[in-house]
């Protein structure tokens, strides 16, 4: 990802296929504008890391990508299909529904959000059955394969309450991966974990990254960000202040980014 050099805009000018194209994205809650015009291109296979102070709109941006938050204005295109309100001078040829979008975008939450009344296997199989219309037996096999990919096949019959936080988060990752999404969103996936459990989740996420999955990750884990981030985004007050390629975190240009990164590293 050579295009987005330090300090440039987050709009790609490479030949790589742009999977997600965000233009002028705005989101308000009441009178408070939380996203003030976001432009961002995410290419297939790219690993985007978003950092920024609390309240800067990182979660809102991530949640806009699968329409858990409905953008107030602007364009969100995934695979060329428009899912946002759109831009004024740019009528979309194809417009998609939230349901269709979410079936190609996987999301992992800070609080895991596993369904407590289902086993690990049941958690993964539920959406395979109703989204993919798989037969029960088929869904179980596919779900088991997905659990194996995060190293939890042996815990397939366990309920969330019987799993550690790290294991729960890995099941949540398996649940999202099982649907073969074209992009995975992670919203501070390790922030709710005890420190000793962070490593296993980050390891799983690195594997996902190595498999070539497109990822957008909001995290404060600087080690992970530095190793995995192809495109690094620093947000503040609902806007992208600065983006950079690999190495960004060692060498941010803006004063605010410098300050922030110094603070989280400590």
């Amino acid at each position: 990802m050579s295009a987005a050099a330090v300090g440039t805009h987050a709009v790609a000018d490479t030949d790589r296929a742009v999977l997600i194209r965000i233009r002028g994205l705005r989101k308000s809650f009441g009178t408070q504008e939380v996203l003030c015009g976001i432009d961002l291109d995410i290419c297939a296979g790219e690993h985007v890391v978003i950092v920024g102070p609390s309240g800067s709109g990182k979660s809102t941006l991530l949640r806009s990508i699968n329409l858990l938050e409905k953008p107030t204005a602007g364009s969100l295109r995934v695979n060329g299909v428009e899912y946002g309100p759109g831009l004024p001078g740019e009528p979309p040829q194809r417009r998609g529904s939230p349901l269709a979008l979410r079936r190609t975008v996987g999301m992992v939450f800070q609080q895991f959000n596993l369904f407590p009344h289902l086993t690990a296997l049941g958690n993964v199989a539920l959406s395979l059955r109703s989204v993919r219309n798989m037969k029960a037996s088929e869904a179980r096999v596919k779900a088991a394969e997905s659990l194996r990919s995060v190293g939890l096949l042996q815990r397939a019959a366990y309920y969330p309450a019987e799993l550690s936080g790290g294991q729960q988060q890995r099941v949540a990752i398996a649940r999202a991966l099982a649907l073969d999404p074209s992009v995975m969103l992670f919203d501070e996936p390790t922030s709710a974990l005890d420190p000793e459990l962070v490593g296993e989740v980050l390891r799983t996420m690195r594997q996902v990254a190595e498999s070539g999955m497109t990822m957008v990750v909001v995290t404060h884990e600087m080690g992970f960000a530095r190793d995995v981030g192809d495109l690094n985004v620093f947000m503040e007050d609902g806007a992208i202040v600065e983006t950079g390629a690999r190495g960004f975190f060692d060498n941010p240009t803006s004063a605010r980014a410098k300050e922030f990164i110094r603070a989280v590293r400590r």
């Binding site: 349901l99 979410r102 959000n113 369904f115 407590p116 959406s127 109703s130 989204v131 999202a176």
Partner: peptide, 27 residues
């Protein structure tokens, strides 16, 4: 029922009725 469970269901692309009957109601 924690709102996060509904959101997780939505993020998985489950329909509203499916979320209600398979995720929310049992809890």
């Amino acid at each position: 029922v924690p709102p996060g469970h509904r959101e997780a269901g939505q993020a998985l692309g489950l329909r509203g009725s499916r979320i209600f009957f398979s995720v929310i109601l049992p809890q």
